[in-house]
Design a protein around this nucleic acid. Structure first.
Length: 863
DNA sequence: CAATGGGTGGTTTTT
DNA sequence: CCACCCATTG
């Protein structure tokens, strides 16, 4: 490795990079201490100085995004080709790819489908119905999410359904708290029910040839634990965000590292924010026990933030009494204090953020751009007011997270077809696809098919096919003919898929065969944007194909879904292979020779694509690729590991920070710490004294996290935004490693800003009351005036102000939706008006009908 | 039996 | 603004 890469490391970082690979290493890295840099440089070091094969290195990240970033950074250090050999990804993705390859070793089928939480929820919901009556008599209602979360917790700890049931039956094994509860009491009934649900849920998943996220880890542990060969390739494993690993992930690390026990982990207990997902900070301690020679290196030098941001952040987290005190230094100057402001409502708060962003652009003479700003929220639904305000002021923005791309119904429709083709046993996909678009196959018919499938031990798809092929009697209300438009496309696509057709082409063919675009137009008001999403899915597939196929040409490629160690190992050392490990169910005959053939059958591009789809959370849209100069709105959780020059954290209020549902208050405090430490140059905390909570404006108090700090150390925050003096600008530039802005430009932009502010920003108009936005003078507003454009034919229609979907962010444009239902009387027209409080005077395209009057509302209102 | 529309209630955080 | 439940209609 070139000297230059090591040159700009500090001493601690350098020690971490060059640390003896054979001695387990814990790097405890505070925020902004360059941990990713250390991790990547260490990997480069291992390869170039310690002669470790890239393909023997396993790098585990917490999210796909982090994996991609690491891949990018490494590419710059050691080149794309070498980088692509490293086995990199999330624990889930790594498990998934090894499980595909070695499915038979843990009695799975290679074509298992990864079940997402939506489908899990539906499964639980179905199972829950059987218990509902019994529970209702005791006035208990169990919500699916609650059940699922308990199941997930059990699974993350490695408790099987039997373990849980045993614990219930044998009171001596119970925890004390549970012991107190009388047997037969309500809580015992709940426990019993949940244990049963857990068992049935697992059974259902297996019947569906499916694994949920937790299963990927559980089966991964089994695979690596019971079949040492599978992990033999690993000479060094590096784990990022170690403080957020759960028990299963810890064990995975152990078993993958088993052969050489060469481990590097990076973590920061102060940033552990995933306890609710069964992450255990204790894993840091546990590692030191399990790997007794572990060395700790502390990275305490923060390169990211100004002194005042760091001081405020540390003051927040230091309130945690159980925290192990740690130091963090910064080389940067103090800089302007973080701002702490109160607003009367979320709208003023949001409006302030929007105008402040504009002001900062001006005040820095455009040294800052839109993408330098982030708004970090405790939860996604807080984004509405922010999005709305940014839209209002024409600030480009993007919401990260939120409802995920892959959870959108149009995307799920397409994926369901793909899943059915790949894994006909996966019932959720079958049930969805079989009647999309509507074929007149309803609930009853589907459940009849499912029952037949269960009793005959066939996949539901086979049942449908047999009915269609007349190999099986039809169902009472004849359904055979209706199945034609389902079975024919499936047969077609299946053939293509088995011949290794590219997923993108499969999707295109599918869209054609089932006339999906038509279906959207007929059924969805926002068909255009939904169709865009479908196109985006094709783009995702294309991108995937390009990346994947280039990797496939490499003999030992590491990317998710890629052919990995197992196969080559078997061929290299066939005698070493443990044949007993195979299960008894007939697949046992697989020999190294036969395997490659089978493998080629297994790893259809479709399957790899589906796996990637299920494991990736978000997708880069065409839009964001073309123009990513946008303000980021996202959750504090999703912001982990990222940084921005300017960060806003709104809603720092009781009930939000900490969340009223949070179990662990200290974790919430750390979450706020994580959010604050994302900021490089400027940090704005704000709270509102009133906030709309489920339709009702409720008074809000400032978060105790801040209140306590503010009281004990008053000087940490400033009550007004920084005026951004020349000195501030220079500091900002130095923190960001940018050139200081041109002074003439600053004054020119500022002048321009204040000249136009009054016009563009209606919030700054004088004389408004708090609720002026929610009760606008009705005369100055609009409402559809039906007739003009709408008279001619007969239809039902909806009019929307601002379909505020993330993938089509053109809010406040009037959209018209027409239902062609010619039998309906022409005069019968219905409108729905979605009007956000911010939407005062929407731009109405001239092509749409003129509007009469508006009924003041802050909610949906029908006319 | 299926489709559709209307009404309603409810949202932490994520692989 | 979704997902879900219900009533009505085809």
């Amino acid at each position: 490795m070139q000297y230059s890469h090591l040159q700009d490391l500090n001493q601690a970082q350098l020690r971490a990079v060059e640390h003896d690979p054979n001695i387990p290493l814990q790097i405890l890295a505070g925020p902004g201490s360059g941990k990713t840099k250390v991790l990547t440089t260490r990997i480069a070091h291992l390869i170039s100085q310690r002669s470790i094969e890239p393909s023997s290195i396993c790098a585990v990240t917490f999210t796909n995004k982090a994996a991609n970033e690491m891949r990018e950074r490494l590419s710059k250090l050691i080149g794309m080709e070498t980088t692509s050999l490293i086995r990199m990804g999330t624990f889930h993705a790594l498990c998934a790819m090894f499980l595909r390859r070695h499915a038979n070793l843990v009695k799975l089928n290679g074509n298992f489908t990864v079940c997402d939480s939506d489908e899990s929820k539906k499964i639980v919901s179905k199972l829950l119905k059987a218990h509902r009556v019994k529970l209702a008599t005791k006035a208990i209602t169990l919500r699916e999410e609650a059940v699922l979360s308990l199941i997930s917790k059990a699974k993350s700890k490695g408790h099987s359904p039997d373990d849980v049931l045993d614990m219930l039956e044998d009171p001596s094994k119970r925890r004390k708290a549970q012991k107190k509860a009388d047997i037969g009491s309500i809580s015992a009934l709940i426990d019993q029910t949940i244990a049963t649900l857990y068992r049935d849920y697992e059974r259902t998943l297996r019947d569906n040839n499916s694994l949920d996220f937790d299963d990927l880890l559980i089966y991964g542990v089994r695979l690596f634990r019971d079949h040492r060969k599978v992990g033999k390739w690993c000479k060094h494993i590096l784990v990022d965000e170690f403080q957020d690993t759960n028990t299963m992930q810890y064990e995975l690390m152990q078993h993958i590292a088993a052969a050489n026990r060469c481990v590097t982990i990076v973590g920061d207990p102060d940033q552990s924010i995933y306890g609710w997902r069964s992450a255990e900070v204790e894993n840091l301690q546990r590692m030191r026990q399990d790997f007794p020679s572990t060395i700790q290196i502390l990275l305490e030098h923060n390169y990211r933030s100004t002194g005042s941001i760091l001081a405020a952040s540390v003051a927040i987290v230091a309130q945690d009494k159980s925290r192990i005190p740690k130091t963090l230094h910064t080389q940067h100057a103090i800089g302007p204090n973080p701002t702490l402001q109160a607003f009367p409502s979320e709208y003023e708060e949001a409006t302030f953020i929007a105008t402040e962003i504009k002001r900062l652009l001006a005040a820095t003479g455009d040294m800052l751009k839109w993408s330098d700003f982030a708004v970090l929220l405790r939860y996604n639904s807080l984004s509405r007011a922010i999005e709305s305000a940014l839209q209002q002021q024409g600030i480009p923005n993007r919401v990260l997270g939120g409802h995920k791309f892959f959870e959108r119904s149009e995307v799920k429709d397409i994926l369901a077809y793909m899943q059915v083709i790949d894994n006909p046993q996966f019932i959720p996909a079958f049930s969805r696809a079989v009647n999309t678009p509507s074929r007149g196959i309803g609930e009853k018919t589907i459940s009849e098919m499912l029952t037949r499938a269960a009793t005959l031990n066939l996949s539901p798809l086979e049942v449908a096919e047999r009915i269609y092929d007349e190999q099986m009697p039809d169902i009472k209300p004849p359904v055979r003919r209706k199945l034609k438009s389902f079975i024919e496309p499936i047969k077609n696509l299946r053939k293509l898929a088995n011949n290794g057709e590219l997923p993108s082409n499969l999707i295109r063919t599918l869209l054609d065969l089932i006339h999906y675009e038509n279906h959207l137009k007929k059924t969805q008001p926002d068909a255009d944007s939904r169709w865009d999403n479908v196109q985006e899915l094709i783009n995702f597939a294309r991108e995937f194909e390009v990346n994947e196929s280039s990797n496939l040409q490499l003999p030992e490629s590491p990317l998710p879904g890629e052919r990995v160690a197992g196969e080559n190992d078997w061929e290299d050392h066939p005698d070493e292979f443990d044949h007993n490990a195979f299960d008894e169910d007939g697949i046992a005959e697989i020999k190294p020779g036969a395997n490659s053939k089978l493998a080629s059958h297994r790893d259809t591009p479709l399957r790899l694509f589906l796996q990637a789809s299920m494991l990736s959370t978000d997708v880069q849209t065409q839009d964001s690729r073309a123009d990513n100069n946008k303000v980021t709105i996202t959750t504090c959780h999703a912001a982990k590991g990222l940084e921005w020059p300017v960060v806003f954290v709104p809603a720092v209020e009781k009930g939000t920070f900490p969340s009223s549902r949070a179990e662990d208050v200290e974790e919430e405090r750390r979450l706020l710490y994580v959010a604050c430490t994302r900021a490089q140059g400027l940090l704005y905390l704000s709270h509102s004294t009133g906030r709309m909570v489920s339709g009702e404006t409720k008074p809000q108090e400032i978060s105790e996290f801040i209140w306590v700090v503010k009281r004990s150390t008053p000087g940490l925050f400033s009550a007004t935004p920084p005026n951004l003096s020349r000195e501030d600008r220079t500091l900002l530039a130095s923190v960001l490693h940018r050139d200081a802005p041109d002074e003439a430009k600053v004054s020119q932009r500022l002048e321009e800003h204040y000249r136009t502010a009054g016009q563009t920003s209606w919030s700054s108009r004088p004389g408004g009351s708090t609720n002026r936005y929610r009760q606008p003078p009705s005369t100055s507003n609009f409402m559809p005036n039906s007739d003009a454009a709408l008279t001619s034919t007969s239809y039902q229609g909806n009019l929307y102000f601002g379909s505020r979907t993330r993938h089509q962010p053109h809010a406040f444009v009037l959209q018209r939706r027409l239902h062609q239902q010619s039998h309906i009387n022409p005069v019968q027209i219905k409108y729905t008006l979605f009007l956000e409080p911010h939407c005062r005077r929407p731009e109405v395209p001239s092509s749409t009908p003129r509007l009469g009057k508006l009924y003041p509302t802050n909610r949906t209102r029908k006319l």
